[in-house]
Every structure is written in C-alpha cells, then in structure tokens.
C-alpha cells in the first residue's frame, strides 16, 4: 500500500474519463443564443414611462370634446385606464426581460397603451364610443390570447403544470388584467347606453370575478415568496373578501350590502396603493437594494402590479353606483 502526501486541493471531477472527448468530435461551437435584453434598463423605464404619459395625454386629447359622462362611466373608464396602465408597465418590463423573443410579445404593452388612452377618454367624454368599443374589445381579446400563450409557455417545460412552472414561467393570471381592463371599458360605455342595473350587474360580476382571479395570482406569487412578510397575507384575505362583498351586493343590492361592498372596495383601493409601497420595499430587500435597481426591479416583487387592485376597485364602485336604488349612473 503506497501512501502519498498531498497538500493540493482536489478538483471537483478528476480521475479517469471514458468515452469520446467533445473537443475531438466537434470543431465549431454552436452560436450563443441571445438571452440578454438589448434595451438598457434605464431606457426601458424611460420608454415605459413615456409610453404611459403619451397614452394618458392622448386619452385626454381624445376626451377633450363631447359631453361629460356619468359618474359611473367615469369611474369605470378610470378603472380600465389604471388596470391597463399596470399591464403596460408590467408587460413592458417582463417581456423586455424575455427580450421580446416573440413578436407577439409586443402586443401586450401596445394594446395596453391604447386601452389607457381609451379609458381616459371614456372617463372624460361620451364622444366616439364606437372606436373606443373597438379598443376595449381588442384589449379583452388580446388578454384572452395572452392567457393561452402564457399557459402554453407554462406547459412547454419539463414538469408541465407544476408549481415550479407556475411560479417562474409566464404568469398565468397577468393577461387576465387586460381582459378586465377591456371589460371595465365596455362596462363604462354600457353605463351610458344601457339600463343602469344591467350595466351595474355586468360590471359588478366582472369586478368580483377579477378580484377572485387576482387572489389566485397574488396567492400563488406570495406563496412563492413563502409569505416571508406577514403583510403578504393582506391581499389574499382582503381581496377575496371584497370580491364576495361585491358579488353579494351585485346579486341583491340591499343598502346594507351596498354599504359593506363600498367599504370593502375602499379598503382594496388603499391596499393597492399601500401594496405598491410594500413592493418598493421588497425591491430594496434584493441584493444591493434600490442602488441595484436595474436587477432588483426585475427580480423583486413587481412594483406596477398592486395598482391594478385599485383599478378593479374603481370598476366595483361604478357597479355599486349603477346598482344603488334611485341612482341614475
């Protein structure tokens, strides 16, 4: 038995090799794929902010003429704009992170921008309902198609419908926000054109459905974050409760139920704003904090997501207004 003295570190995989070495059978290496976004984060943030501002300004311009809409239509129109704004910012960042690998990934921020403009215009004036209806329908359809694409993305990886893919692949619920934005916009138009209670019922059920859907999405992502901060439980309890209150008030709009729903919606709107602050804090807890925003804005909780809560809440308020006895929008 021979003993040898060693003072050198070991390697992770020394010892004998069998088989053909790769260097001998392949002479050229495959071209690297381009996974890094080409747009610099600062440019992206500027472009997103600019796009958002442009959409709002465009909407204001479009809404400059025409009669003032009812309060319900204003609320629902604003709700649609807020939701679409959230989608614009979120999808611009997330799809840019994926380097807009597929051309259709541009659809989300572009259609969201148009929806912001249409929502703002709808909140300001009753004119040109036809083109706006087209935009809102387009948003809803884009959202539905996006949901299909996102699910295909989830299912395309090993594991299929697994938690790992639901956590980290395209978020299944995100395109739904565009469906909701389109729905709220259409609801805003209906508030002007249809029987208020029918419009209110449609908006109420849409809002309640949206809140339940959002609960599923937030629940999944906060579960992914292991509810490491107790505040992460707030949306997954308050949002479905608000959804229940809104659904109850929609199905039987008694004064008590309407009051309860109004209170719950107010709480949800506040949560939307506070949530943005919490998500900003969450970004600060990434390695390097806000100083390293070019990474942490993408890695941390999405800062643009919580305002969508307030968007749905505005739609809910519009529904309650339409449903309240004696109210005409």
């Amino acid at each position: 038995m021979a003993f040898s003295t060693r003072t050198q570190p070991s390697d992770s995989h020394p010892a004998p090799c069998h088989g053909s070495p790769p260097g001998q059978t392949r002479t050229s290496r495959p071209a690297p794929s381009r996974r890094q976004p080409e747009t610099a984060p600062a440019t992206l943030v500027r472009a997103t902010g600019g796009g958002l501002a442009l959409a709002v300004a465009g909407g204001a311009l479009l809404g400059a003429r025409g009669g003032r809409p009812s309060r319900a239509a204003r609320l629902a129109g604003l709700g649609a704009a807020l939701l679409a704004g959230s989608v614009l910012a979120d999808s611009a960042m997330e799809h840019s992170r994926a380097n807009f690998r597929e051309r259709r990934m541009y659809a989300a921020p572009l259609v969201a921008g148009a929806t912001v403009a249409a929502g703002v215009a709808t909140a300001l004036s009753r004119a040109s309902a036809g083109p706006r209806r087209l935009v809102f329908r387009g948003a809803a359809l884009t959202g539905l198609a996006g949901t299909v694409f996102h699910f295909r993305n989830i299912l395309s990886r090993p594991g299929g419908l697994s938690f790992n893919n639901l956590f980290y692949r395209a978020p299944f619920g995100a395109p739904g926000a565009l469906v909701l934005a389109g729905g709220l916009g259409l609801g805003a138009l209906a508030a002007e054109e249809r029987e208020p209670r029918a419009a209110g019922r449609a908006l109420g059920l849409l809002g309640a459905g949206g809140l339940f859907g959002l609960t599923a999405e937030v629940g999944l992502l906060h579960f992914r974050g292991a509810f490491q901060n107790p505040a992460m439980y707030a949306p997954v309890t308050a949002v479905p409760a608000t959804g229940l209150a809104l659904a109850a008030a929609t199905l039987r709009p008694s004064p008590a139920r309407l009051r309860l729903a109004r209170g719950a919606l107010a709480l949800t709107s506040v949560l939307g704003l506070v949530g943005t602050g919490f998500h900003a804090y969450g970004v600060s807890r990434g390695n390097g904090g806000w100083r390293n925003w070019t990474q942490n804005l993408f890695q941390g909780p999405p800062v643009a997501a919580p305002p969508s809560l307030a968007g749905i809440a505005l739609g809910g308020f519009a529904a309650l207004r339409l449903l309240a006895p004696g109210r005409r929008g």
Partner: peptide, 8 residues
C-alpha cells in the same frame, strides 16, 4: 452528445 465519464 459526446458523452464521457469521470470518477471522484
């Protein structure tokens, strides 16, 4: 492709 083995 070009599989090979090591021991450690």
């Amino acid at each position: 492709r070009d599989l090979y083995e090591t021991a450690d």
